[in-house]
C-alpha cells in the first residue's frame, strides 16, 4: 500500500518568460502540510515523505508522487483534458453555420465573390508551434482567450490570450541519480494534463533531504507562433521514517501502522 502525493506546480508564465527564469515565478504546493511539508505556496517547497511501515517499525513499501503543472493565466486544469480540441471544433462548427447562413441569405452574388476569403477569415488557421528553431508546424487547436473563446490577434489584445499551459519535460537531479526517486511520464484517463502526467515512486528507505530538478517548457506567443521556452527549477523532498498518517476517519490525524 502506498500513499499518493500530489504536487501542484503553478507558473506565472508571462513573468517567467519576461524574466527568463522560474525563480520567483513558480509556486509549489502539496497536500502534506499535516505531515510536515514546508514552504507551501512558495518556490521553496520541501515535500515531507513519510515511509509506510509495518507495525514493528520496519520498512514496508514505496510512496508515489505525482506532479501537476499549470499556469496562472491558462485555462484551469479543472476543464476536461480535451477542452482545447472540443472548443476548436465547436468554434469551427459555429463559424461554418454562420457562413452558411450568410451565404444563403440575401445578396448571394455579392457574398459569393468573397466566399473563399470569408471562409478563411472565419475558420481561421490552426495554432502554430515552433518545433525546432527553423521549423513551425500546425497544431490542431485554435488559440483561445482566457474565457475559452477564439483568440483573434487582429481583434483581441494579447492581454486576454490564454497562454498554453506549461509542461514538465523531464525530472532529473541527485534524487534520481541516487535512486531515491524513479520518475516517469504516464498516461491517464483522468481529465487532467491532456492525459499525461509525471509520477515517481520514492524509495522511502533512503531518508533525508534529496534534490530534484523539474524541466519545464513554457510557450511564448511570438509572431503568432507558440515558441517553447525551456527552463529548470530545483525542488526538494524530505524522506523520513515517520509513519503515514490517517486523515480520513473520525479517529483524527492518527498514525496508520500496517498490520502483518
Amino acid at each position: 500500500m502506498s500513499q499518493e502525493i500530489t504536487i501542484i506546480v503553478l507558473v506565472d508564465i508571462q513573468a517567467a518568460i519576461e524574466t527568463k527564469s522560474l525563480k520567483g515565478n513558480i509556486y509549489l504546493m502539496d497536500n502534506l502540510r499535516t505531515d510536515g511539508s514546508t514552504g507551501e505556496g512558495t518556490g521553496q517547497l520541501i515535500t515531507a515523505i513519510d515511509g509506510s511501515y509495518w507495525c514493528d517499525g520496519s520498512q514496508c513499501c514505496d510512496v508515489v508522487m505525482n506532479w501537476l503543472i499549470t499556469g496562472i493565466g491558462s485555462l484551469p486544469i479543472t476543464l476536461p483534458h480535451n477542452y482545447y480540441h472540443t472548443r476548436s471544433k465547436h468554434i469551427e462548427h459555429e463559424w461554418i453555420q454562420s457562413i452558411k447562413n450568410a451565404h444563403l441569405g440575401k445578396n448571394t452574388a455579392k457574398k459569393e465573390t468573397n466566399f473563399d476569403t470569408t471562409i478563411i477569415e472565419k475558420i481561421g488557421t490552426y495554432s502554430k508551434l515552433r518545433t525546432t528553431p527553423n521549423k513551425v508546424m500546425d497544431i490542431e487547436i485554435k488559440s483561445l482567450n482566457i474565457f475559452g473563446e477564439h483568440f483573434d490577434s487582429s481583434q483581441n489584445t494579447k492581454s486576454i490570450l490564454n497562454l498554453l499551459p506549461p509542461q514538465i519535460s523531464d525530472i532529473t537531479g541527485s534524487a534520481v541519480d541516487n535512486k531515491v526517486l524513479f520518475p516517469a511520464q504516464y498516461g491517464t484517463p483522468v481529465p487532467i494534463k491532456d492525459g499525461w502526467y509525471w509520477s515517481a515512486t520514492v524509495d522511502t528507505s533512503k531518508t533525508g533531504l534529496h534534490n530534484y530538478t523539474l524541466h519545464i517548457t513554457l510557450y511564448d506567443f511570438v509572431d503568432e507562433v507558440w515558441t517553447p521556452v525551456e527552463l529548470t527549477y530545483d525542488a526538494q523532498i524530505k524522506v523520513s521514517n515517520n509513519p503515514v498518517r490517517n486523515g480520513f476517519t473520525n479517529a483524527g490525524l492518527g498514525l496508520i501502522p500496517l498490520m502483518y
Partner: peptide, 15 residues
Amino acid sequence: YLFDNNKLMGSSGEG
C-alpha cells in the same frame, strides 16, 4: 493559497 499573474506589476502575498 492565492495567486495572481500580476506580481511583476506589484501584487503581493502570492501563495
